[in-house]
Design a protein around this nucleic acid. Sequence first.
DNA 1: GCGGACGTTGAATCTCAAC
DNA 2: AGTTGAGATTCAACGTCCG
Lengths: 341, 341
Amino acid sequence: MMNSLPECSVDLIFADPPYNLQLRGDLHRPDNSKVDAVDDHWDQFNSFAAYDSFTRDWLKAARRLLKPDGAIWVIGSYHNIFRVGAALQDAGYWILNDVVWRKSNPMPNFRGKRFTNAHETMIWASKAEGAKYTFNYEALKALNEGVQMRSDWVLPICNGGERLKDDNGDKAHPTQKPQSLLHRVIVGSTNPGDVVLDPFFGTGTTGAVAKMLGRDFIGIEREDAYRKVAEKRIADIRPYDNSALQVSTSKRAEPRVPFGQLVERGMLRPGEMLMNARGQMAKVRADGTLVGDGITGSIHQVGAKLEGAPSCNGWTYWHFKREGKVVPIDVLRQQIRADMQ
Amino acid sequence: MMNSLPECSVDLIFADPPYNLQLRGDLHRPDNSKVDAVDDHWDQFNSFAAYDSFTRDWLKAARRLLKPDGAIWVIGSYHNIFRVGAALQDAGYWILNDVVWRKSNPMPNFRGKRFTNAHETMIWASKAEGAKYTFNYEALKALNEGVQMRSDWVLPICNGGERLKDDNGDKAHPTQKPQSLLHRVIVGSTNPGDVVLDPFFGTGTTGAVAKMLGRDFIGIEREDAYRKVAEKRIADIRPYDNSALQVSTSKRAEPRVPFGQLVERGMLRPGEMLMNARGQMAKVRADGTLVGDGITGSIHQVGAKLEGAPSCNGWTYWHFKREGKVVPIDVLRQQIRADMQ
DNA sequence: GCGGACGTTGAATCTCAAC
DNA sequence: AGTTGAGATTCAACGTCCG
């Protein structure tokens, strides 16, 4: 299926492949109830070599489908994630982060023989070293109460009303992922209108969240039963309003304003003096360069020289006087940007 | 060196191999200061293939040294851990858990281009599928406020007084690990008298903690400078009293607070004496239990026994001495809570 | 002696458009 | 494909200094 799609056509791939759990026999809880394990035929592989071969095949197909600036997320556990990670690197992907999903309510280890398996690992990778990729830094920072999002995410597992059930009331899929996880992945690494591919679609969590968030999606799923559940589920989803999909953006995304425009527009007069926090002065020239202390150049260059620093943001470094108050020149840039809208 | 040691002779291997970081160029903080990167020659490999070859060699040598019931821990980051994990599985080791060290104070991502790299991954594996291994379940549970220890551990990075400095006041090793991490590994997967091998000894954190905890150790380190620091460091270590090394082996009531973390973090030494308001004393043990007046148990249990009361808040009941002052242990809990936010 | 201000630092694969 | 230059970008823990 993947090989029948056009190359360089998707912005994001989210993949939740079989984990190759290699479970032996049944597991019972201390109260003697039996644990409903993942023993489906699609999780059976004869050897690590067979699993590796499967992994390398789909990763190769996935990479062909990715746009040059696209990215992939893969989720797994210790059973498979090391093989997946090595295969990703070998296929030419460039790992950007590994992210730990720390489950707030994991299943305990009933026998007391190991640690509670309380997390799963996701790998986030771009198509190649040096490739561009989408990262909505400010939006994720906003999701995290104003501090930079970390590589460990604390989220509950999927249960309650979100957990899809079949006609018998049993869970429709053994490893349904929480929507909160996909929400963070999709908000963080796509923009509205982007195309998201999930090659192990299952009951369609990726598609459901993509649709809610105004992203297009492609889902591939081999099992009829899962596909039917996914189709019904996604048909019931109503996308959020367009206005709700706008997220915080970084300053980098804002239009560039040359300092010279401030002079051209008469916001600063040639000959006017700017000052830094230490009270050092520089004179504005008609072409938008500064002169101060025998140094000539852009607002950034003169600031960097004065500080002996490798670089300097002149917009926040330099100040001017208006009605007795000292104001950073960045407020003038804000005015121009407001005018431009 | 490893191949010169007798086979099947060590109980535990802790390995902190080079991560193969592949850094390009310098990185500056927003305040223009330069990040002191890990650019040491020992972390340079020409390719993934070279790193894999190195990894498979030492993992093979390590497996020969392990007793049949021994275990290995390896720590790494996304740069190398997937290759290490796959090589472990290919070499015949059997992964028991992957454990995430969630750093309470990681270095941020200064350019806002990725997630804060806030964790490292450890892999815990036995020598082969079905092999026995040591797991002090109750001791770890006691260290974790009476609930089963999870696969994610929140611990601070190594800094402050614990961080070893050279004669210039610079850090003696760029990647020194915190003792709290080794404390948990060694208490959890060895018994007193066991032999611990660290084939990438560095400045000897593994040896220091092993010695404190009454385990024997072997350290291998190529760099003279690190070895010298390690030798001096370990010579200054005083092992805890034998009685403090006894850990819980039977079920007991659950304490409501993680007193054991005070020991792991070195805020209280195993063997240190606590006192109540009447001047009665109790000794702290390595797993966070107390022993005093013939009574053993949690801080709450021992307090309750001494008072003949049905219950007791050990946090306010017990006190310790610092610089001549008697302070309730609750102040240490406050510090940890502040760290964990 | 205490508290607040300020400076330093930690395993980091850390920019990007225009020329 | 390489170079240039604008200009965007950090969190928690410690240690020191000063009032």
